[in-house]
Design a protein around this nucleic acid. Sequence first.
RNA 1: GGCGCGCUCGUCUAGAGGCCUAGGACACAGCCCUCUCAAGGCUGGUACACGGGUUCGAAUCCCGUGCGCGCUGCCA
Length: 442
Amino acid sequence: MSSPVRVRFAPSPTGFLHVGGARTALFNWLHARHTGGTFVLRIEDTDRERHNEEAVRAIYDGLHWLGLDWDEGAEKGGDYGPYYQSERAPVYERYLKILQDKDMIYEDAGALRFRSPRETVTVHDEVCGSIPFDLSNPGTHPDMTVRRPDGSWIFHFVNVVDDIEMKITHVIRGEDHLSNTPKHVELYQAFGVEPPKFAHLPLILNPDGSKMSKRDTGASVQSYIEQGYAPEAVRNYLCLLGWSPKDNREILPIEEIINIFELKNINRRSAGFDLDKCFWMNGQYLLQMPLERFADFSIPFIDQAGINYGTREALLPALALVKEKVKHLTDVPAWIEFFFNDDYAYDQASVEKALRADGALERLHVIGDCLTRLELWTAESLESAFKALATTLGLKTAALVHPARVAATGRSVGPSLYHLLELLGRDRVLKRLTRTREKFTA
RNA sequence: GGCGCGCUCGUCUAGAGGCCUAGGACACAGCCCUCUCAAGGCUGGUACACGGGUUCGAAUCCCGUGCGCGCUGCCA
């Protein structure tokens, strides 16, 4: 019988949430949810950086957006707080005392160092296997500093102390910590505590193989929020970076991933971040998303673009027509604008192509006559009308559809013409045909 | 430099000795569908880093080389 799983995400507040950090948080969360364990959020705001509310906020916001809820920790509370390292000085003092009493700490130029036992330490990693590290040579493995002369604490020390105090059972973190882990194990042993299980995650790289840093495109979770990604799409994509269900499935509901997620199935090789694929996945999610949810996501972007659509009820039909076109939520306003603005702009290239062609404007006139007499104003009847008219005139349907589309929307691309005309309504369509003809006849 | 980890199509990956003339997905190209753009369907391309072993047989095991990354800090 092993004790209940307790995992943690322990970011330091740098002002934004990095996708690498988000992936680390995600894998911790998945392991917690898969095992029914507890996911803890601890803020590692040590050293001179004072507790910065804004920087911490960026972490909360990113995690909330991705749906990675934590059970315990910063902003939430719990039995093992405080969850900000800046508030845990007494704990660190207490643990320092333990080592001092064992004569394992000495002073060096004002700083405090941990005296390494100088043994071979084997790290047992759920992902990488068992790796022995020979720490016997002080030249290559100097005694680690645990506290600076100014009294501030070093990461390795506080990290281990907190994990002990918070009863963390699995340390799941980036592979950049693998080489630090034997040092951490020495500390656990010095405290007489059984080390937790470790799982080191492969790093996330740029497409060119370089390390992903702040400035790189797509590095910040915030950028996905701003560009109109669906959180579940980004989360799904992140799951596939270093983990796979191994059965060729890629788009999986998160419940299913929680179900089959195993630390053992995590890869060891670092993964290049493929923005194209993330983009594609977002389109897939938007395509399959229920209309109401799509509307919830879209409305902020529509509002931001200043489109006056009236009521949500009026907006929904337009969104329904356009949903399958959208790859980024930021594109929604451009797709639907013509529905709500009679003074829509004409795309120059589209005008040249569809309206400047021989006879195009005359055809607009004929179409107008035809639509005036149309009995039923539905997509189906519109379609038959266009096709019948084309046959009568000895034209391809496209020769009527293209000018009509540009006249009614100002653009040459968009959703199904017949459905769009239906939604616009006869009066507005006829006015638009006339307006367009007059505008370009001069 | 030392130590550690890794190396399958451009990218993410499947593959745990024979099922692999290496499968899927993204991207790319072509075709089909079609009122446009997408979506969808079909088709295509020069992927097991290299060299030695072990074995009847290796992408899969072992050793070396190379390359990449990480750690080596009074950064986290």
